[in-house]
Write a protein that binds this DNA or RNA. Structure first.
Lengths: 302, 302
DNA sequence: GCCATTTCATAGTTTGTTCTTATGATTGAA
DNA sequence: TTCAATCATAAGAACAAACTATGAAATGGC
């Protein structure tokens, strides 16, 4: 058995990601020619074509694509092995690359960093903020190890662990709050008066379904890119919005003219951890869950 | 990320199996010093001890043992990747290392070899005969790819596929057959008159449970090591035995004075395939199952 | 159409890693 | 004490992987 060189398999994966020899070589800190010959050597070793080259351009063959996928898994496993050995088997040390969505991250980072420092002092945590879709891609590619997302969401090949609930609140300027229907019925609000985030933020979908806003005319066409924008819009009496309690707890509407009104029963999103099925670091991830859970809003009985 | 050399990880696994630098080096076709320094380099790379050396002898540290286990998995995955790429994605070529238990192997080998030649001509099959326990160990270690076993049996981490039934028959010398109770009731046979295989053959357990022989005095203390021995014992009028129909179909009692009597209803073993959960070669294994199944006894309605 | 640019392949050389042989050092058995 | 077994170490040979420089084919702007 002639074993392939993991470094060269990594070149192959990077080439697939960059679709360009030069850029891939740069990312691997080698010269373009090194990467080029390494790929050719892999093809020789396998005795089959991974790329179809034609006139200084190339496409991956379907075998090549399959091999890339398998390489990603193999490299992931190899790096977990090295991490494991380097941490001398200590489950609570090493590095965790943690991804968090933007509607959770700013309200949780401070508490998490403190919690990790106290309860997992040997652990290095690298935090990364991005949308759910991007984070999930990076998770399956091994670029991240663990995600904090809003659930429910479909995560094929991954395991979820629910950490807590995060209820939505209707946010209104105090001058407008008095004229709201009582009991609160969102369907009675003016057309286009509810501001939500851009579609790529999963909170929009969760708020829509949790608050029964499907097919409703009340949602504004203006889509904000952050919760802070929503606060500004509402504070300018331009309309209403929804914010998660997590954000309210972090004083997001302090120093504004806004008031928060409990949305209807059952209007919440769940917050949970997501990791690759088949990771070897479940014990660590569970511990992280135990640290994060108390930072989430307490369940209120209503 | 500095990637470890898979060849060196293989050295480590071999050292663990041989518990001796010299022998391990021989098996890897390198010099003893090569292996010695490779292991030390691995330790440097990991920054932790894999072996405790003392006075020219050594033991694996508990970390070392854990690393060995992970290495086995990694090497297994790597070799599957290489096989896959070398077969250019052709599911029906390459090599399958197939293990079969001794109470099945001799009666199936001829038909299997013919079947594989006809229906999977590009496939190389390496056959190996051993007890269930040994085969399962080799399967999980990646030394074998696929097993043909008698079921039911517990196979953690593995998937099973039932191929067919193999009914047990009571075997008696023709001079003794007339004096058997009618209808046949095994509990009426003389004490210690039934010969079975040694305990390590799973057929013993299957015959015992299928024929209701638990806690029965009829089983002899003499434990045979092969079905051929059982035939000899029965043929010498020393007592009775059970044989699977699979063996009878292969003329195991031709040229003897023996007759086969159908054992009671429900007295059979199942024969099935077993492979590692998570293999990438299921399609091939299913095809192999389709080739082997017709070689097994036809289900007879009784 | 022409020239600059982009892109991947190839050649020759340098660098670095891996392996071998030879040797040393320690232990236990004869 | 001597011999055999066992693992570690050192120095140089063999091999693999990297770099620089260059070539060749296509694309795009002028």
């Amino acid at each position: 058995m002639k074993w392939p060189n993991l470094k060269h398999l990594h070149y192959l994966v990077t080439l697939h990601q960059e679709q360009n020899f030069h850029k891939a070589a740069q990312r691997c800190s080698v010269s373009q020619s090194t990467l080029s010959t390494a790929i050719q050597n892999l093809e020789d070793h396998f005795g089959s074509q991974l790329l179809e080259r034609e006139h200084k351009t190339f496409v991956f063959t379907s075998l090549g694509l399959d091999v890339v996928e398998k390489c990603k898994v193999l490299l992931q496993d190899a790096s977990e092995l090295v991490e494991f050995a380097q941490n001398a088997g200590h489950w609570d040390s090493g590095t965790v690359k943690l991804g968090v969505i933007p509607t959770i991250a700013p309200f949780l980072f401070e508490g998490m960093i403190g919690g990790f420092k106290s309860f997992l002092p040997k652990l290095t945590v690298e935090l990364q903020e991005d949308t759910t879709d991007n984070l999930l891609l990076q998770l399956t590619d091994g670029e991240l190890d663990l995600l904090i997302l809003a659930l429910p969401i479909d995560t094929p090949g991954c395991k979820q662990m629910v950490l807590g609930h995060d209820p939505f609140h209707l946010i209104a300027h105090k001058d407008l709050a008095g004229s709201l229907p009582d009991p609160l019925d969102i369907r009675l609000l003016p057309k286009r008066s509810i501001f939500l985030l851009q579609q790529e933020h999963c909170m929009t979908g969760h708020a829509v379904s949790a608050c029964g806003l499907q097919h409703q005319d009340q949602v504004s066409n203006l889509a904000a890119s952050s919760l802070y924008t929503l606060v500004q819009l509402a504070n300018s009496k331009l309309g209403y919005t929804f914010l998660p309690e997590l954000a309210l707890n972090q004083q997001i509407i302090t120093n504004t003219e806004l008031v928060a009104l409990p949305a209807e029963q059952g209007a919440w999103r769940e917050i949970g951890l997501v990791w690759r099925a088949g990771t070897t670091r479940m014990q660590l991830f569970r511990r992280i869950g135990e640290i994060v859970a108390p930072l989430l809003p307490l369940p209120t009985l209503r």
